[in-house]
Design a protein around this nucleic acid. Sequence first.
DNA 1: AAAGAATGAGACC
DNA 2: TGGTCTCCCTTCTT
Length: 554
Amino acid sequence: MPPQTRRSSFPKVVIERDTESEESSSEDEAVEEEEEQEEANVVVPEETIEAEASELKKKGKTPITITLKKVCKVCKKTGHEAGFRGATYIDCPMKPCFLCKMPGHTTMTCPHRVATEYGIVPAPRKNTTTSLEFVFQRQLQPRLPPIKPAYVIPDQVHCAVIRYHSRRVACLEFHPTNNNILLSGDKKGQLGIWDFGKVHEKTIYGNIHNCILNNMKFNPTNGGSIYAASSDGTISCTDLETGISLSLMNLNPNGWEGPSRWRMLYGLDVNSDKSVVLVADNFGYLYMADMRSNNIISKPTLIHKKGTKVVGLNCNPLQPDLLLSCGNDHFARIWDMRRLEAGSSLYNLEHKRVVSSAYFSPQSGSKILTTSLDNRIRVWDSIFGNLDYPSREIVHSHDFNRYLTAFRAEWDPKDSSESLVVIGRYISENYDGAALHPIDFINISTGQLVAEVMDPNITTISPVNKLHPREDILASGSSRSLFIWRPKKLSNIAQPREEKRILLCGEASKKHTKKHDHNSDDDSDNDIFRGKDKGPKQKKLPLKSSSYSSRKSR
DNA sequence: AAAGAATGAGACC
DNA sequence: TGGTCTCCCTTCTT
């Protein structure tokens, strides 16, 4: 994508400013520039030192001569500098490229920075056609549309809840039937239920889990309840109306027995055909619970390297016997549910680092999409083809350091061609002086970056993203906040002004959550990104994106 | 405003 | 296998 397009105009967002921060933006800029220069000056001019030295001599003191050279903040070596300069990050040339992990160039000059395309490896097709493949092709073929429709990208913030959760968002899920309900789980184990159609209707259930809610999935037979897996070692089944929760499994019945004994649940999926909830823990084991009796069925099965975290489970949408798992042993593995035992996986898909997510394609179930910490999204075009190598590897920045929820490339469930994918970006880009982390839409058939979506008011990284199963809506979780994005054109024409709302919740969110009656005829647009509780973040927001404070150099 | 903390993978021994 | 160090393009609180 050419750099000009990055400077596209941002949607106009009204932000209420406090009187003390009412200074002119030009002044802000001046101050900022000065600060930036200071930051960039790691070198103390030698004249200064000399002047000080001569002064000391006059006073009769022995001068200490210190020669300061340019020191890199990253590798501590001299001769070059690295780190943030304003909103632009300068890579340390001594290290391999931060983006594609290859030596010889920096992120700035990385060829993948412009075209997110990497080593297109065509999947060698199997010559023999199995009977399973034949049936599958027959079922699938009529459903493929002859002409692929253009992608509709939700690229404008429609509404948001700022600081809704008390810790970072870990997972998101749309309601299977109610189009306006978004569920969110956070690091503290809280479950959020937000009706973004009414915006102010939001609930937080805080007593279901007591640490990170890693994954959740609706009960396919009952849209009113949701299963969740948590690092507290339990599976919960929660009734959304009442908030009453039932614990299906507790892997730590004796409580805390040290970190090496504490079991945490990460991956979760529901197999409706078999009426089973599947979960996986941080020691490599898979567990199953019957959805009708809520009883644990079968013994735990070792499905990944012993002692490693299994972060993702996914059941094939068409083949109830196929299961996909991924984890910290650098593998995604395909299993036959009828033959689940340690080492009996059908295929092992190798990765260079941790696999944060692995999903079958949502409609045909014949493609596989994985996200790995080696900054690559991998695609297998057909589970019936050769699975030895991925069909494509797409370089994309999602290798995070710490403190963030793992990035997961998510399918667009509406895309019948099964090629549109959304994923948040870790690395920042300088957009009119602001360091922003876009949310990327990628065509996984070509590796092309279809769209990069961002808002000048969202300065935090958005690792959690989910596309709506029926509407052109993107939900994203960024730190403790949730955002609903809609296509720009649609939101300009079809939506009445008062519907655009951004709420600030803060710590006091629990007080006025459910059935918070808000008069929608009031100061409409003023609510956007403002926050009545005057959160510190909102205070700092300047009006113009050009004067937007760049990220601090560290 | 600067410092601290929370916290996870990987390398190395 | 387990302890320890390093990474140091986060985010929030004090």
